[in-house]
Design a binder for these strands. Structure first.
Lengths: 206, 206
DNA sequence: TCGCATGTCCACCGTTCGGTGGATCCACTG
DNA sequence: CAGTGGATCCACCGAACGGTGGACATGCGA
């Protein structure tokens, strides 16, 4: 039995969702809330398994609520259910710890499968969201460095100054600096020392 | 007459070396190769006295080739000629059986003296390499950091500037710098980035 | 064919770092 | 008690680094 909490500021939507889940036996709606803060209360009170979370709400928004829930109740799975699929909405939600992201044009059947998947700890994303995500992950925080960037990082880890690295790779010092800036961006650091540390943690360096 | 084989993946470097040795009468280049495996072939074919070996090459790297040569042709002297002088490069090369270790910024004259020394079975090391080696041999006491030094290194690895590390440890920035100098000495490095790298390699950092 | 990722390069500027050569204090130990 | 090692602090200087905001060429894939 999956205990579900619904957080959405529109009573109509909440009603529709309640009806939808009333039709199945393995999912029971144990709480409803009209904004994020209220939703957190409901989850805390009823030990929910899954939270269906809207993003845009008065009071505490869905992203903040998701992040707060991940702190307070790490076991709970937050499934975003919203109308918008722009990057501006998707990325913060995923970063905040949502396990899935669905759009409100999803069919009831999809919705229920998604809730069951979330309860099992699996990620479910709407197709258009997947695209956004992949496009994003392919970009800045790709975790993976280009071949050239890895070479530069390895040299830096081995004690090369920018100039020495440039000599070793037969390119200009300016290029080394550019590569390093890109490395910093991708690894989320601000200097060569912590870039090297991240390199080891992500097993990019040996 | 010293028979020399040059192993380096950069044709330009090979050309420069060939020219260098063409100017003297007691050294003759009897073979060239672009990677380790090829280099072994050349040595086997021409019974060389000395091999000038680069370390970083596509295919078989210089360390592997050196070790293989020591097995196949124990009489041959392998002289490493590379751009890098970090411990990670130096130590494996020496262990693999290289008789000398020079850096590519060596002057042609130094290079020729080194080749002659190698042919006589003498060791020639670039000054900075000597330092690394001594730092390594200087005993286990030199390998371990004090508790405070480990704290500093960890902070640096996590992206702290000297000032931030000082704040975190409730001490002055000057003390951080002193600790770092001691860390550099002990680890045989010259900057924070490679200190972090060494920290990971020696499992001082996580 | 257009866009995107990649790799290369440049200038300017303020900040930080590394090198050097000290110094003091404390705890431990021969 | 003197010596040793660890931890703290100081000043000075030049070199290196990081931040910013570009620019251009190439090659690959949509």
């Amino acid at each position: 039995m999956i205990r579900l909490v619904i957080v959405d500021d529109h009573p109509i939507v909440r009603g529709g969702l309640r009806d939808t889940f009333a039709a199945v036996e393995d999912i029971v709606v144990v709480g409803e809330a009209g904004d994020g803060a209220e939703g957190i209360d409901r989850v805390m009170a009823r030990t929910a398994d899954v939270v269906l979370m809207d993003l845009r709400m008065p009071g505490m928004d869905g992203v903040s609520a998701t992040a707060a829930l991940r702190e307070l109740v790490p076991d709970v799975r937050v499934l975003i259910l919203t109308t918008f699929d722009s990057e501006r909405d998707v990325l913060p939600a995923i970063e905040a710890g949502a396990i899935g992201y669905l759009l409100k044009d999803a069919l009831p059947d999809e919705l229920m499968r998604a809730v069951r998947a979330a309860a099992r700890g699996e990620s479910v994303l709407a197709p258009s969201v997947t695209q956004h995500l992949m496009g994003q992950v392919r970009g800045p925080s790709a975790g993976s460095l280009t071949g050239r960037e890895k070479e530069v990082l390895q040299l830096v880890a081995n004690g090369s100054s920018n100039r020495e690295a440039a000599t070793a790779l037969f390119i200009g010092e300016a290029s080394i600096k550019t590569h390093l800036q890109h490395i910093y961006d991708k690894l989320g650091v601000r200097d060569r020392a912590s870039a090297v540390a991240e390199g080891y943690r992500r097993r990019l360096l040996t």
